[in-house]
């Protein structure tokens, strides 16, 4: 079952050259996909099509069998989006209020909201901080709060745009752990990053983008070798493995 189907998608600002050019992409339920590419290659623009924050002039996007543009609320509930800058997506005055924001918007009754929020905060390990104002949280905690805010809406697809930027090592680990857990629960995961090192061993599939086009798409360990060609740093572990195999063949 394809949970995402994008066909012939071209996104263009009036008079400019296309930001996304003839994108075709299908994603199966439960996949863990990494989208990599240099800055400005169109990763964020592509992701914003998935929940209708941007709607392209040409082409179509289907999420779980329904056109995104036909039912924005449904698309936004199905596709949880975690943005690069955690600080500007946290809207609550307290950790609890922030996680409650989504479920309240979906019209859940207050008791259910409380239950969902507590369960979600427990899941990301922020239950002890639920009365805290968000600005006192650490970088990793803010990112986890952003994840919780999205999880509380019970999405099936979770999209991370540059989730590791500005994080220290413990912060990166916390987010990785969270991602792996969500993937093993059956969520479909899409991650945009230009640092493949952080997703080695987690992703099944790698998509490389350049100037608004998908230039490579396939199993992670096959496509990763093309990374440097398109301006993405080749992970050290992959590099050394390649060197080791070359040495064996010698």
């Amino acid at each position: 079952m394809n949970i995402i189907e994008i066909s012939n998608l071209t996104h263009q600002l009036i008079g400019g050259k296309p930001i996304l050019n003839n994108i075709n992409l299908t994603v199966e339920e439960g996949e863990f996909i990494v989208v990599a590419g240099a800055n400005g290659s169109g990763k964020s623009t592509l992701f914003k099509q998935l929940n209708g924050l941007l709607i392209a002039g040409k082409g179509q996007v289907k999420v779980d069998g329904v056109f995104v543009a036909d039912d924005l609320k449904r698309a936004r509930q199905k596709v949880g989006m975690i943005f690069q800058e955690a600080d500007s997506q946290i809207v609550g005055e307290t950790v609890f209020d922030d996680v409650a924001f989504g479920p309240e918007n979906l019209g859940l009754p207050a008791e259910d909201v409380g239950r969902v929020v507590n369960r979600t905060l427990d899941l990301v390990g922020l239950l002890d901080l639920k009365e805290s104002p968000p600005h006192i949280l650490s970088g990793g905690e803010k990112r986890r709060l952003a994840i919780a805010g999205v999880l509380a809406m019970a999405p099936r697809i979770i999209v991370f745009d540059e989730p590791f930027s500005n994080l220290d090592y413990p912060g990166i680990q916390q987010v990785q752990t969270q991602m792996a857990a969500l993937h093993s629960e059956g969520h479909t995961i899409l991650v945009a990053t230009h640092n493949l090192e952080t997703v080695v061993g987690m992703a099944d599939r790698l998509i490389l983008m350049q100037e608004g086009e998908i230039v490579k798409d396939g199993p992670f360990y096959e496509v990763v070798h093309f990374a440097e060609e398109f301006g993405v740093y080749l992970p050290q572990s992959v590099r050394s493995r390649g060197e080791f195999q070359a040495w064996l063949k010698r």
Partner: peptide
Amino acid sequence: GRSQRLADAMESRCFDENRP
């Protein structure tokens, strides 16, 4: 810049001004 990103994030989480 931040307020634009904030608006995107709120919309992504189904914000509707007429929430009960």
